[in-house]
Amino acid sequence: MIRSEIYLAILALLVAPAVSHAADAKAGRALAAQCQVCHGLDGIAKIPIAPHLAGESEIYLQSQLKAFRSGKREHEMMTVVAKDLSDQEIADLAAWYASIAISVTMPK
Rank of each mutant, 00 (worst) to 15 (best):
I2C: 07
C38S: 13
R29K: 15
C38D: 13
G55E: 01
A9R: 14
A95L: 01
M77W: 08
R3C: 07
A45T: 10
S20C: 04
A22I: 02
W96M: 02
L8Q: 14
A32H: 04
P51T: 10
A67T: 03
G40F: 05
P17I: 10
A54I: 05
K66Q: 10
M78S: 02
W96Q: 06
F68E: 01
A95N: 03
L65R: 14
L13C: 15
L8H: 11
A33I: 09
S57F: 10
Y7T: 12
E5W: 05
M77P: 01
A98D: 11
V81P: 05
A22W: 03
A82K: 04
P107G: 13
Y7F: 05
C35E: 07
E89G: 02
L85F: 06
V15M: 15
Y97E: 01
S20A: 15
V19P: 00
V81S: 04
D87H: 00
S103A: 12
A22H: 05
S70Y: 00
P51S: 15
K46T: 11
F68P: 01
A30Q: 15
V80K: 07
L93R: 05
A101H: 07
G43L: 00
A45G: 06
A98N: 10
M1G: 14
R29A: 06
S70R: 01
H21I: 06
E58D: 15
A94W: 04
A9T: 11
A67L: 01
V37F: 13
W96G: 13
I100P: 00
K66P: 03
K46F: 12
S86V: 04
H39F: 13
A82Q: 07
E74G: 02
S57H: 08
V81M: 08
A33C: 00
Q64I: 07
S57K: 11
A101R: 13
A25D: 04
A25S: 12
P17M: 07
E5S: 13
S99G: 11
S4C: 01
A50D: 14
Q62T: 10
L41Y: 01
Q36P: 01
A25L: 10
Y60W: 06
R69Y: 06
S4M: 04
K72I: 09
A82N: 12
L8K: 12
L13W: 03
L8Y: 09
A67N: 02
R69L: 12
A25C: 03
A33M: 04
T105Y: 09
F68L: 03
W96T: 03
E89D: 02
P48F: 10
A23D: 06
A82G: 08
